[in-house]
Design a binder for these strands. Sequence first.
RNA 1: GGCGGGAUGCCCGAGUGGCCAAAGGGAGCGGCCUGUAAAGUCGCCGGCGAAUGCCUUCAGAGGUUCAAAUCCUCUUCCCGCCA
Length: 404
Amino acid sequence: MTAEAASPELETLVRRAEHVIPREDLATRLERGKPLRVKLGLDPTAADVTLGWAVPLRKLRDFQDAGHLAVLIIGDFTARVGDPSGKSETRPQLTKEEVQGYAHSCLASLMDILSEDNLEVRYNSEWLEPMDMGDILRLTARYTVAQMLERDDFSKRYRGNRPISLVEFMYPLLQGYDSVAVAADVELGGTDQLFNLGVGRDLQRAYGQEPQVLMTLPLLEGLDGVQKMSQSLGNYVAIREEPEVMFGQLMSMPDGLVGRYALLATDMTPDEIAEVEAAARTGGPEAGRAKRRVAARVVAIYHGRAAALGAEAAFDRQFKDNQAPDEVPAAAIPPDAIDGVAVYLPRVLAELGLASSRGEARRLLSQGGVRVNGEQVTGEELPLDEVKGALLQVGKRRFVRLTA
RNA sequence: GGCGGGAUGCCCGAGUGGCCAAAGGGAGCGGCCUGUAAAGUCGCCGGCGAAUGCCUUCAGAGGUUCAAAUCCUCUUCCCGCCA
């Protein structure tokens, strides 16, 4: 085997990747000059596409741009099984209807990243649903319980006396079978997918195909800076989020994440990444500026440069100058909150969704978390004409304009 | 199939007859501070138009008791050991 200098194409394609296994295979397949079938499977288990998902998706786009075929697998069947990767709990099973709804909304967002060209979209229910018991037995015969238990997440749960459903053992096999069904040359995934991707490789070999190359990409941490970005944890940024909101969400990330986001969520050059990373470490206003830079770059990818500038300006108005955002949702004062000429605020807050209950609303009031036209209000009642048309604010970022 | 252990609020977890809307921690929320960061600090953290008041909550269904998260019976689910 000759260890030739990596081609520029290979260089680009493996950028940001965590593992490429086996790397030589990718090189040789590229040398053949035929477009590769590059598989990425996504389970529609939630409605949005996050910056976390965007990491492998943007890699898939790189392959498309290099002339390869993106084989996007919508895991409408596997979503119902539930991927146990990295989870310490059994995932709740979703219904077919839920999954269809998610698939529909995800697919739209996905196309913000992927190109229409060089794209094949497949639903894995196409081949998984018709499998019969014979097919399933053939599949399950390939793997042992010990192999499954080698996986960290399974063994942890096993040792910790937590349940592991048999159906969870099926998941890697089904995902692996997808690779057989679409004859993948390369499969992309997050680092937590390494085991699953490997199963695909094994199964392809067992079914007489050339085994796929595995490429994993780093998992982007969520805004909490601790756990991976996930919709169920609520620490995510959706790629379709409004520019202003997206910018604000990104500004709330811990400093330690600036470099990670620069690397994984922007198109910054290595030099730029090093710069913002250093700035974030310096701390102080310096770090704040670095974070702004990263936030603006992310917003620009999904909404364009102009929107990014606008979002930053809006951010300053709201959080530096403490002004209400330009666009504030309007709502009528709930009629049952009005008693003659008095308005009962807890009811207003609760019914408009600014507080989860009237009790919560009362707490917010008593703690000074509620403002009417910028003035802190602590009493629970206000005269009706003071409330009509007023700007109601809870905390720093929840606003409603009350219509008269 | 047998024996044993377990199921508590968003999560973890204490509580084994009244003092329990239920300790403690985490997460979250609000105030101050600040770079909407971190750290810090003060407060909140089941519901009900005020309550030392009422309602709902400790897997589910029944029962004992003046009184049950706590005791009894059955059911469901989880874990372990044995087969």
